[in-house]
Amino acid sequence: MNSNASHVNSVAMKNPGFFTRWFHRMASPVWFYQISGKLLPWLWVLFAVLLVTGLYGGLVTAPADYQQGDSFRIIYVHVPAAWMSMFVYMVMAVSGAIALIWRMKLAEMVMVSCAPIGAGFTFIALVTGSLWGKPMWGAWWVWDARLTAELILLFLYLGVIGLYSAIEDKRMASRAVAILALVGIVNIPIIHYSVEWWNTLHQGATVTKFDKPSIHIDMLIPLLLMAGAFKVFFAISLLLRTRNELLERELPRQWVKQLVEEKDG
């Protein structure tokens, strides 16, 4: 009985399932570098298509708002950036968890690469929001819950960046950042539910109400296109940053040296 079980076990070890194989291959730096290199041109094309159609739809074909006039068009940058600011944090925390649990180097690099991109999106969301706020609310900045939460998110990103650069050993720094990212994830639900918690100046969610969205369909489609464009742009910059980080960390390895020789030759 016992030997039988161990036999079954060893067979399972020899023939791992599709998912396990994919998971382990993902973790291999060389494989990642090659695949991401092939993927990048396609992502650029997809990004360009989404961006052009989204911007055209948002700036030209979408009707002006009956209340806000043309100033509402800033949402085509503001809203996708705000969405991404939270989405990037999720990606960072999930890859942080993977890095902590399986000690996967690639997940560490993905996590570390997320932080500056997320900080950038958060910054864009804050700046565009304040540009929109001046004509609409009559003030550059209002101490409203969602704005404040977004600002706190920016500080969370800056904390991650600061901690990573403060610790010399990059593998240790990655572990520290992973713990911090998982702790910070507590903040994301607070951002999300703050709209319901404090009833303040910022308008409530208009898109996620599936039953009866309070945004016109001609305005919604460009917004979704722009959201797609931002997401693809995130994927592109994440891949670029991760490849960079990968080359830096794997510098003494054979395959990186070969790569450099190929470039030179």
Partner: peptide
């Protein structure tokens, strides 16, 4: 408790005062 997380992360660093504030104060907000 939340402050202790920040301290535990930065205890091995030489000058961690500002970094600790940056890590911990946003988490104190709620």
């Amino acid at each position: 408790f939340v402050g202790a997380i920040g301290v535990a992360l930065t205890v091995s660093l030489k000058r961690s005062g500002m970094l600790l504030a940056l890590l911990v104060l946003p988490l104190y907000v709620p």
